[in-house]
Structures are given as structure tokens and as C-alpha cells.
């Protein structure tokens, strides 16, 4: 049975366009000028217990709106969300006991309190049993290397220290579902590695379900068995990482090394595009649904003095980059 069920979920924001100043405020109050913005558009997916799912998309694609509906902060405007069988918005408090959330750069720890004091307070808020709390604190201190941090107030911590502390605070009540928004952003390689290791360990030992939004390819490759890509509020991909390449690696590039300097007036086959034209070097990108590598290579060899050529496989990194730069949008639309 899935732990998270999202069924035909939509969220439409009504924005009241306001003019600046007092007059604008009054006008907005009495003669509002509404525009609707669809943030999440008939979204459906489900997540099984113990899965680590990468939830990715451009800024504004609807990622954080979805997360806010999953955590109960926002109410859906259409469709339904179930987390552990509950409606997270109407049963917000019950839901809150079973989930943990890391909101990117915004810490949940008290700025001026020593970490241990913050953790004590959070344990009380979540009613963690004292014996269990002690046990977990020892465990976390070891895996996240918190020992020397426990007495330090958050305001004095580095970015990496803050995120380690944040993860401990988020998982101290052993939530069944954890939402992590950019947990490794801005961190150095060592800290990233430690954090990924910790997330993996929690997932392995406690079957914690993790929903992860990230720009970091390393996070996705190391943690996620499955990726959901959304764009303009819709799911455009839901499946394992391995098949992303097939789905989105539509374009390939061939780099030609040419003997002669002049390559003017080339005729290229359909679905092909000249990306770079330098002396002794040509880069051609082609759509593999419309033409093939051999056709492109053949056509060019006839017209230019080709010394060597190489075919580049689409790599995951460039696909993720494309997703985040919004380039996928046009590609999917074709």
C-alpha cells in the first residue's frame, strides 16, 4: 500500500493585482483585479514506503507548492492528497507527528540557542520518549559528527554544520516521511557525502520514505531509485533514472575534425543543426528521431574534408541541466 497518494491534484492561486500606495491598497480591497495562476495541474503519483524519490523541475514548476500540499501547509484546490492514509491539511497536527521537513536555507532551530537546547525543545514538541531520545541523540551525534556542535548556537555554525544540525532536528522524532528541499545546496563535497550517507542509513534502517528536491545530480544519482520530473505543474516523467536518457536524450552531438579551414556553405540533413563552426572543427547536433548518426556523418563527409569524428552520448548531467534551464519544455512539446 502506498504511503503517499496524489490523485488528480491541482492548486490554483488567485492573485489580486495591487497597485502601490494607499490608493492601490484600497482599490485592491474594493475592486479587486484577480488573475488565476495554476501552480499544480492535475498531478497524480504515488510513493511506496521506503522509497527515496527525487522530485525535480524548474523553479516555478510547482515543486514547492506540491510539497506544501503534501505537508499540509496548503489546501488543494482540486483532487486529493493522502499521506499515511490521512488528508494532511485537514488532519494537519496528526500528519505533522509523522513527517519531517527540511526547508532549504530556513532553519527550524532557534538561532540563539545551543543546538542541544533546540533539540531538547523539538523532542518535547514531538513528544519523543526520553529514553528513545537519548538513544537517537547518541546515534545522530556519531553519524553526523555533532559532538562538538551540541553546545554551539546555530548563529555561530557554518553552512555545513547548520545542515547537519538541521537533519538531526528533522529526524529526531523518527518521522515516517521526510521532505528534503535542497539539503546539500552550497555544501562542500565532504559534507554532502556525509549527509547523503545519513539519509541512506535512515532510509535503510527505518524504512523512512524520502521526497527530495534538488538541483544536485550527485544527490539524485546516489540517493534516488526513482525520479519525478514536473513542469508547468504536470508530471512529465516518472520512473527510474536509467530510462531518463531514453526519454529525454533525443538530441545527440557529433564533433568533426576537418582538414581544410573552409567549411562554408554546408548542406545539412533534416533535423540537424550546426552548433559550432570553427576552423578545423564542426559540432553538429541532431534529433535522433528524425535522422541517424550515420546519415549525418555521411552527408558531412561528402561535403567536407573530415579527418576524425566522435559521437557524444547524452549524459544525465546535461539532461538535468536542461530540465532546470527549462529547455525540456520545448522538447516535450514537439
Amino acid at each position: 500500500m502506498p504511503i503517499i497518494e496524489v490523485d488528480d491534484l491541482s492548486k490554483v492561486f488567485r492573485l489580486n493585482q495591487k497597485e502601490p500606495g494607499l490608493r492601490g491598497a484600497f482599490k485592491a480591497l474594493f475592486k479587486p483585479n484577480y488573475t488565476d495562476k495554476v501552480a499544480v495541474d492535475h498531478l497524480s503519483f504515488s510513493v511506496d514506503p521506503g522509497e527515496i524519490v527525487g522530485y525535480i523541475g524548474v523553479n516555478g514548476a510547482g515543486k514547492s507548492t506540491t510539497i506544501k500540499m503534501l505537508t499540509g501547509i496548503l489546501a488543494p484546490s482540486g483532487g486529493a492528497v493522502r499521506v499515511l492514509g490521512r488528508d494532511p491539511h485537514s488532519q494537519r497536527v496528526a500528519n505533522a507527528r509523522d513527517i519531517g521537513v527540511v526547508f532549504g536555507q530556513r532553519t527550524q532551530l532557534w538561532w540563539d540557542l545551543a543546538l542541544i537546547e533546540s533539540l531538547n525543545l523539538i523532542a518535547k514538541i514531538y513528544e519523543v520518549e526520553p529514553a528513545r531520545y537519548k538513544q537517537l541523540l547518541d546515534q545522530f551525534s556519531e553519524t553526523l559528527e555533532l559532538d562538538e556542535l551540541l553546545k554551539v548556537p546555530v548563529r555561530q555554525m557554518s553552512l555545513g554544520q547548520k545542515m547537519r544540525a538541521e537533519l538531526a532536528a528533522t529526524l529526531i522524532h523518527e518521522p515516517k516521511v521526510v521532505y528534503l528541499d535542497e539539503p546539500t545546496i552550497g555544501l562542500d563535497v565532504m559534507v554532502k557525502e556525509r549527509i547523503r550517507e545519513f539519509i541512506k542509513q535512515q532510509n535503510r534502517e527505518k524504512q523512512t520514505t524520502v521526497i527530495l528536491t534538488t538541483h544536485d545530480l550527485g544527490d539524485i544519482e546516489e540517493l534516488c531509485q526513482r525520479v519525478i520530473i514536473i513542469d508547468a505543474g504536470k508530471v512529465i516523467y516518472d520512473g527510474p533514472i536509467s530510462t531518463i536518457k531514453d526519454r529525454f536524450g533525443k538530441y545527440r552531438t557529433i564533433t568533426f575534425e576537418t582538414g581544410s579551414a573552409s567549411t562554408a556553405g554546408l548542406a545539412l540533413p533534416d533535423g540537424t543543426e550546426l552548433v559550432a563552426n570553427e576552423p578545423r572543427k564542426l559540432v553538429v547536433r541532431f534529433d535522433r528521431t528524425r535522422t541517424t548518426a550515420s546519415q549525418v556523418a555521411g552527408a558531412l563527409m561528402e561535403q567536407a574534408d573530415v579527418v576524425d569524428f566522435s559521437l557524444a552520448e547524452p549524459d544525465l548531467e546535461s539532461i538535468i541541466k536542461q530540465i532546470y534551464s527549462g529547455a525540456l519544455r520545448e522538447e516535450v512539446a514537439v
Partner: peptide, 14 residues
């Protein structure tokens, strides 16, 4: 406005 209110809503207290 800074978004910290969301934190209150994901905690199991009023």
C-alpha cells in the same frame, strides 16, 4: 513573509 510560518504548520502543536 519570510516563510517561517510554514514551520509552525508542520509541527504537531497549535
Amino acid at each position: 513573509r519570510p516563510g517561517g510560518f510554514d514551520r509552525f504548520l508542520v509541527r504537531p502543536i497549535n
